[in-house]
């Protein structure tokens, strides 16, 4: 089965899977973020890492990039010139209020479908699509349900594995030892300081942040990074699903994922504030890549709008060399909160 790689949360894995292809959400390695496009200044480390990952990818059958951020939109130009993988650029609107932009997104899914068919996929029936959507929805629900029994890192890794390998990877808490171990984890860790992390997508090495927080006496109870809960689509509305599954899918993704790229991005704050209250969060780690204008500009706005302490951690993508600095800053932040 051909693998279709992507990274943007607005690409519905179900749609790719329904075409008989294997969706795989790429999580770049920070090494690529350091060495790819050497000499180019101003490139977001995640975009560097993504380009490196895609250009060296020998398993992929095609790559899907979106227009959600300008650098990624332009990374598509590099990918099409430097890489032999067939590439598709999906237009994801920034505005979200009108029926016209929602229809534009659905149209883009149809266009993506035609691309997938050209590259080995087959057109899905409504029933087939609906069945896959249900399967993914169940898997997502089971991941969400497991949150409190897993360490923050394990939870984040489950989400990442789900993106990379689909529902087959999620097998959340299916084996007894895992249940036992994680229940014990939850019991042991009742005195932590609850934190949220918000920002763009994480790279592989950056999952260490969850450990660093835990080692400092905290716990990430809300992973609002793009690769965390915030990047998961809304629960499926199963009513009448088989009649028009594509529209339901579009609604779950385009209407359900709140992102900093939205204009206005007020719904991101509605979502975030609701979660912060629900999980009694006491502090926020704001994690951003240098040269990511979207998130960088949001720092001031976040501080204006949310009355919680915020720790700004920027990264040039080389987590290993930055780890001590990051740990020191998180440690100081935790001391302030304890």
């Amino acid at each position: 089965m051909r693998t279709i790689v992507y990274t943007c949360p607005y690409v519905p894995a179900e749609w790719i899977a329904a075409h008989g292809l294997r969706p795989s959400r790429v999580m770049p390695d920070s090494v690529g973020s350091v060495f790819s496009l050497a000499g180019r200044e101003g490139v977001c480390p995640y975009v560097r890492g993504f380009i490196a990952e895609v250009t060296k990818n020998d398993r992929g059958g095609a790559v899907v990039v979106t227009t959600v951020c300008d650098q990624m939109r332009r990374a598509f130009d590099i990918v099409t010139r430097k890489c032999e993988l067939p590439a598709f650029l999906m237009n994801v609107p920034n505005t979200w209020q009108s029926a016209a932009v929602q229809e534009l997104y659905t149209d883009e899914l149809r266009r993506l479908g035609r691309f997938l068919i050209r590259h080995g996929g087959k057109s899905p029936s409504n029933d087939a699509l609906a069945a896959i959507m249900l399967e993914y929805d169940i898997a997502r629900t089971s991941i969400f349900a497991a949150r409190e029994r897993l360490s923050a890192r394990e939870y984040a890794e489950r989400i990442a594995a789900f993106g990379r390998d689909g529902p087959s990877s999620s097998c959340v808490l299916r084996d007894a030892s895992c249940v036992e171990r994680n229940t014990q984890y939850a019991i042991r860790n009742t005195r932590y300081v609850p934190l949220a992390i918000i920002g763009g997508p994480l790279m592989k090495q950056e999952f260490r942040i969850f450990d660093i927080v835990a080692e400092s006496g905290g716990r990430i109870v809300l992973d609002a990074t793009e690769t965390g809960e915030r990047g998961m689509c809304a629960p499926l509305d199963a009513e009448g699903l088989r009649e028009d599954p594509l529209s339901k899918l579009a609604r779950a993704y385009f209407g359900g994922i709140q992102d900093v790229s939205r204009r206005p991005d007020s719904e991101l704050y509605d979502w975030f504030e609701e979660k912060l209250t629900e999980r009694a969060v006491r502090g926020i780690i704001f994690r951003r890549y240098v040269w990511c204008d979207m998130w960088h500009a949001e720092l001031g706005r976040l501080k204006d709008l949310i009355d919680l302490p915020v720790l700004d951690i920027d990264t040039a993508g080389d987590f290993e060399s930055e780890e001590n600095r990051t740990a020191g800053r998180i440690g100081a932040f935790m001391e302030m909160l304890q």
Binding site: P93, R263, G300
Partner: peptide, 23 residues
Amino acid sequence: GATCDDFSAIAQRLEGLGHPILW
């Protein structure tokens, strides 16, 4: 949409300061 991120981000910051924008 297909515009530069820095401007989009700055414009969002502007709106947040109380200048409504028709996007």
